[in-house]
Design a protein around this nucleic acid. Sequence first.
DNA 1: GACAACCTGACC
DNA 2: GGTCAGGTTGTC
Length: 269
Amino acid sequence: MPELPEVETIRRTLARCLPGKKIEDVEVRLPKLVRPDVATFVENARGRVFGEPQRKGKVLILPLGESSLLVHFRLTGQLVFLSPESSEPAYTHLVFALNGARLAYADLRQFGWLEIVRNEDLAEHPSLVSLGPEPFDLEAEEFYVMLTSRRRRLKALLLDQQFLAGLGNIYVDESLFRARLHPEREAATLSFEEARRLLRVVQDVLREAIATGGSSVRNYVDGEGREGRFQERHLVYQHRERPCPRCKTPIVYKQVAGRGTYFCPRCQR
DNA sequence: GACAACCTGACC
DNA sequence: GGTCAGGTTGTC
């Protein structure tokens, strides 16, 4: 599930209810989801108080005093704050008890993970140390240099978290369509104008997606269990064979860089 | 680069 | 039965 807009939405919703809440206890029902092991995880969690939620790329960072809880949702992870009377989501594998309220981690496909890291070790964490810049932190000139020094296809490059942090399959396809760039185009062949256009649409798409609470294509929900609405604005993602919004040519679906990819073969060059 | 692996589905 | 799935990592 979550790409940058979804994780950012989870961060913002949890920011409203989580800070100041104390972890009274942790129930880990699926041990493989926590690192390095259940005993260490529970010991490092118990008694800690949540601070102001942060995010880097697709990683959610929940400060707990001198350490921080890292959460990666991979494809189907959910983190939902529950009031005392509400019931937990399906596939809940871990629950933090917060003096009546609870914070539940659910994950249908069980690919996500949670880990508590000392703040002084955060920068060196494998999931954070090699992250590329976020799209919002870039200028057109730098992005142009980044792109034109790479001999890779745009689709593969934009999905690479070491190149650029935060984009996933949905937002790469939506951005490339809006920028009228073909997913199989070699990055090094972009003109400065094309690079500038691509950066601008990536930023626009992410901002719009955050403003509408992210994309709920399958089972994504925010930190309060609510679905997003950006899927209603998708122009190509999951629009196989439907007419292109610009030229009416049927949207093509094919594997590019190992991922299902949607694009207009006429508009995108 | 391509592919399998990690899992549990939904949908045709 | 087959295909596909908001991600990442490890292997040829």
